[in-house]
Design a protein around this nucleic acid. Sequence first.
DNA 1: GTTTAACCCTGCACGC
DNA 2: TGCGTGCAGGGTTAAA
Length: 289
Amino acid sequence: MPAKVQEGWVELPEVEVVRRDLEKEVVGRRIRDVDVRPQRNAMRIIRRHARRKEFADLLAGRKIMKVDRKGKYLLLFLDQGEVLVVHFGMSGQFLRGTKRQALSPHTHVVIEFQQGGDLRYIDPRTFGEMFVTSVDDLGKVSELDHIAIDPLEDTFTWQEFSGELSKRGAKLKALLMDQKFVSGLGNIYSDEVLFAAGLRYDRMSDTLSSQEVRRLYRAMREVVQDAIRFRGTTLSDEAYVDVFGKPGEFQSELKVYGRLGMACRRCRTPIASVKLNGRTSYYCPQCQS
DNA sequence: GTTTAACCCTGCACGC
DNA sequence: TGCGTGCAGGGTTAAA
């Protein structure tokens, strides 16, 4: 039975690829105008703002100074002490465009630049969102405040990771996906990390040997770094693309995710899946214990 | 403290 | 064949 084609979504590697693209493409540009599209769903994207105009006025005339990432959130810092915060949800994406190019379906926001060209926010499922706040108020945004340490940060050491793991008594899969424990991993990469570490989804975090902790720590950094190098995971035509519309290539590197019934790349045992809290998790029954 | 369920929405699969 | 219905899917949060 072929694996069902899934829509793609956005985890740390994809957000980081977009961040790097935006740094090259939009930093230094000044916003001329912002068009929040007339369809009702566009308001869902800017749900923290009462009106389209309010959101647009906060951005018009501002210059984009730098682009940071916190977990799966993108932070576009503007020249007057304000920040455009973006979360892609499940199906959000940024695309560079020009006035002559027609807007694709589910385009909710178009940011037009003075130097020409625009940046479009597209999101079929509208689970994503964007809002503008001041740098001073960033700390008051609870979702950002709660985000745990990033696996790519140098300050993320395995000793610290080990301490956090033993403090918690939770199943590894749930823990890896918990943004308050470690930031940026979703369903795809948590499965891949657990496979790379040789650990099962239901292992309790406080039962790992120090060797297993180190394996998990190393796997987490390696999988995320590799996925960025391959510019993210694109599972179907409709799925994630970078700012230029180009799909990622990490899907060909996936070891377990979406490979139900296919031979494990390491031991040839068929990949199994299990439903956890309504989400499908993939693993190798032989390689992971 | 952890686990579960529900919410948001679209698109697809399925059945009549 | 065409339409209507049901539900999968991820991140977050509130409830259990």
